[in-house]
Nucleic acid binder design. Structure first.
Length: 732
DNA sequence: GAGCGATGTCATGGT
DNA sequence: AAACCATGACATCGC
């Protein structure tokens, strides 16, 4: 590395952007203050970020020092400002750990590094000669982030997969077809199968087309992990590897979501997701090395977005389309630029590299800085100019994840359909300001349930009242359950009632009616213990005869007698039996008295064997009745709790799904930014002759100390292979 | 009259 | 062992 650094000291004003992605839960301030003091100085430095050495006068400085402000090239100056703005724009991607650092490095005039020296590299040191190009504006981050995501959410549901024609900005932003996210669209879609198939094809093709780049990108990301964001890996990691060559597929997004989790809540198993991703990438890397190059290379013809930088000489470019799309995609560029395979392809004049020549700013901006990124997310076939000559689609190792993601979406949609959950409405609510998607879902879902719950509550109250009209003891059943009441359940039920969270009117009414009588209350009106049931089985015939058959003459008496008859009908079987047997105390006492008191009570009276038997039966049945009521109540509570748990889980699932989409989109956008900045930097690198470096021969690479090196492609490839091998060996 | 929910009761097993 | 509780199964009632 030291030798490489020597080469670096040569001359040319260099500009390197270090973009840190994927920082999960890494505080920016901490990162700046403790981990990388040089970066902090650079980032937080004054307006020196705009100080730039001229690109074309590279030999008049030593190690980047002593650059006079007057020597600033205006072109570079504005370029730096633009890059700075882009860097700041990164804040909106809700990845607080992300930092973009552009360092200016001067190359020693004596150096003679060129493409003819494959074993040598140009080290872009981050040491003292670096110029501050970034000016983090943390104060604006939060709001911008929020706003950005609100917009993203809107985009999420608004983007339709362009089967043909020009792509829109939303297409670029989302990357994935709308059918994946737009639930309402799916609900209304008549030909669901066809659409799903189309969407699957799109994404499959897309994933396959960029499989190689994805594999590299993800693999490197997974390997470097957090270190990639703030502290560069100890061992040099090729920036070519680190920079994604294209956006990831939805399936990939699933796997990449977790690293972007920056909020306080991290519902996903980050470790597991990364492991899955790594395993996938391993398989993918095996395939893409051989086929991705061709596919990526052919993509421009099929993809109007035009990976212009990597265009093969024989690949026609629709300039109009490219320019048009350039105006659409602000941050896009050819991701294939980062693909070693692509870059190694014959470029129209390796020494010219028109797109990267700063003087050709129009070309640069139109072809790289603003290249439409739709091609990153949609297969060429979907862009209307599919290249039939493109090789067969890469096998999609991410198909499994893709399918899983789609299934998740679909299942969510199904849930929404089944339960009246309106994803669109929830999404709208979510877009406003409620970050708690669960609440948003609730708001979309609960009104009906709440109202029904309230109605249930009122109806249950009325039901209870009506019951109490027939049985006054029932009115107190909620508050008091008697000696053996199931108090814990009662509390649970009260809680549910107060919350009104569960709109299960039938069950609720059922429950309310199930609330059993309070024996203590019954003791006051023992004859009103039961309403209408007259279970006469297992009844002793004698008791039935004596107790249950009032004389017919009693039916034709006065109002008192009628009332007595009514009360008589309200008596339970055991009440009748007790009265028939002339039991000298109430059934309530028989049932609820403790054993000792009960025995004492029995001992006070001279009772016949039949009476004692009846009393014991009454006590047994009474207790069992309450036990049965408790049992039923408990069973019902269990069911209600399970249903509530299911609802909660469904809400959580929907919320997690939305978060996943958001994080994936954020990750995708960050990668796009990285690609763009990478190309910006790389395109402005010049050798001692003022010629741009060929991307097929050189690549930017992160160093362990935070610096960025310009090393030959061969070295980068070797290191990349080593990087790929490590996890495999580890896994073995 | 059948179906169904609510309730009571019994038998049984556990505490 | 007695008392109590929990619960499945069944019966009965009322709608």
């Amino acid at each position: 590395m030291l030798s490489l650094k020597k080469y670096l000291t040569e001359g040319l004003l260099q500009f390197t952007i270090l973009l840190s992605l994927i920082g999960v839960r890494v505080d920016v301030d901490t990162y700046l203050t403790s981990q990388l003091p040089p970066l902090r100085e650079i980032i937080l430095g004054p307006s020196s970020a705009y100080t730039q050495t001229q690109f074309h006068n590279l030999r008049n400085t030593l190690d980047g020092y002593g650059i006079h402000p007057k020597s600033i090239d205006l072109d570079n100056y504005f370029t730096a400002r633009r890059l700075l703005s882009q860097v700041r724009a990164l804040d909106r991607f809700q990845v607080p750990t992300t930092e973009v650092n552009a360092w200016l490095v001067h190359r020693d005039p004596e150096g003679s590094v060129s493409g003819s020296q494959p074993n040598s590299g140009l080290a872009l040191e981050s040491s003292s000669g670096l110029q501050d190009v970034t000016g983090p504006d943390n104060g604006v981050r939060e709001s911008e982030t929020e706003q950005g995501f609100s917009e993203d959410l809107e985009d999420l549901g608004a983007v339709a997969p362009p089967v043909s024609g020009d792509l829109t900005k939303e297409d670029i932003d989302l990357g994935a077809g709308r059918e994946v996210f737009d639930y309402s669209h799916r609900q209304k879609e008549q030909d669901v199968d066809k659409e799903l198939r189309d969407g699957g094809e799109q994404e499959d093709t897309w994933a396959g087309e960029g499989a190689e780049a994805l594999a590299r990108d993800l693999l490197v990301d997974g390997e470097t992990g957090e270190s990639f964001t703030a502290q560069f890996p100890a061992d040099v990691a090729s920036i070519t590897e680190a920079v994604p060559s294209e956006s990831e597929s939805p399936a990939l997004q699933n796997s990449l979501l977790s690293p972007l989790l920056t909020g306080t809540e991290s519902p996903f198993d980050l470790e597991q997701q990364w492991q899955d991703l790594m395993s996938i990438m391993e398989m993918q890397a095996m395939e893409v090395n051989t086929s991705a190059s061709e596919i990526l290379y052919n993509a421009p013809s099929g993809d109007p977005l035009g990976t212009n930088y990597s265009l093969a000489p024989n690949t026609p470019i629709n300039q109009n389309v490219s320019l048009h799309q350039a105006s659409l995609g602000g941050c896009g560029q050819d991701f294939s630029l980062f693909s070693p395979e692509v870059e190694s392809l014959p470029v129209a004049g390796s020494s010219t590299l028109l797109p990267l020549v700063p003087s050709n700013s129009t070309s640069l901006n139109s072809t790289f800085g603003s290249t439409n990124l739709a091609g990153l997310f949609f297969p060429p076939q979907l862009n209307g100019t599919a290249n039939d000559t493109a090789g067969p689609e890469l096998p999609d190792p991410l198909g499994g994840l893709l399918d899983e993601a789609m299934l998740d979406e679909i299942s969510l949609m199904d849930l929404a359909i089944e339960e009246g959950f309106n994803p669109v409405q929830a999404s709208q609510l979510e877009e406003e300001f409620d970050s708690d998607s669960g609440l948003s879902l609730d708001s979309s879902h609960s009104p009906s349930s709440l109202s029904s719950s309230e109605g249930s509550s009122s109806s249950s109250s009325s039901s209870s009242s009506s019951s109490s009209s027939a049985s006054s003891s029932a009115s107190s059943s909620f508050s008091e359950e008697g000696a053996v009441g199931y108090s814990s359940d009662s509390e649970t039920l009260d809680l549910e009632e107060s919350e009104g969270a569960v709109g299960y009117q039938p069950e609720y009414s059922k429950f309310c009616r199930m609330s059993y009588q309070d024996p203590s209350q019954l003791s006051c009106l023992p004859y009103l213990e039961h309403v209408g049931h007259n279970h006469t089985y297992n009844m002793a015939p004698s008791a039935l005869d004596s107790a249950d058959l009032p004389p017919p003459s009693t039916l034709k008496k006065g109002s008192k007698e009628k009332q007595a008859d009514f009360l008589d009908k309200q008596m339970s079987r055991d009440e009748h039996r007790a009265r028939a047997m002339k039991i000298p105390f109430t059934n309530d006492k028989i049932i609820n008295l403790p054993v000792e008191e009960f025995n004492q009570l029995l001992s006070k009276y001279q009772l016949s064997e039949a009476q004692l038997s009846l009393i014991r039966d009454i006590r047994r049945r009474g207790k069992n009745k309450m036990a049965a009521q408790n049992c039923r109540k408990r069973k019902l509570d269990t069911i209600l709790n399970l249903e509530r748990d299911v609802e909660d889980l469904q809400r959580d699932k929907a919320r997690l799904l939305r978060e996943k989409v958001e994080f994936l989109r954020s990750l995708r956008q960050m990668k796009q930014k990285v690609q763009s900045l990478y190309q910006e930097v790389f395109g402005r690198l010049r050798d001692e002759n003022g010629r741009p470096y060929s991307p097929s021969q050189y690549a930017l690479q992160y160093a362990g100390d935070g610096s960025v090196l310009l090393i030959p492609r061969t070295m980068a490839d070797q290191q990349a292979r080593r990087q790929e091998r490590k996890p495999k060996d580890r896994r073995k």
